[in-house]
């Protein structure tokens, strides 16, 4: 009975702790996440962490998607 008296407020506090929750949109901070960590694309064997090289390669690759300049006007 005595144990019940101090356990009840404790349980109530535990139950209430859920109520301070804000909208359930995950606040994602770049590179931080509670789950399994993932390496970034420029950390692969091909780039070895050279972010600048990866970025310029991606840009060059993306530019290849336009045919403007490749065909006679």
């Amino acid at each position: 009975m005595n144990a019940l008296k101090w356990m009840l407020p404790l349980m109530a506090a535990a139950a209430l702790s859920a109520c301070s929750e804000q909208p359930q949109v995950v606040s994602y901070e770049a590179g931080h996440y509670s789950g399994k960590p993932d390496s970034r694309p420029w950390e692969s064997a091909a780039y070895g962490g050279d972010k600048a090289a990866w970025q310029s390669d991606m840009r060059a690759r993306a530019r290849k998607q336009t045919e403007i300049g490749r065909m006679p006007e």
């Binding site: 694309p41 420029w42 840009r59």
Partner: peptide, 22 residues
């Protein structure tokens, strides 16, 4: 992406309707 390539769907699009990248 880790190989320095873009999504295949866009890269092989025959009319270049689908674009991918930055």
């Amino acid at each position: 992406l880790a190989e320095g390539k873009l999504p295949l769907c866009a890269e092989m699009c025959s009319t270049k309707a689908l674009l991918a990248g930055d």
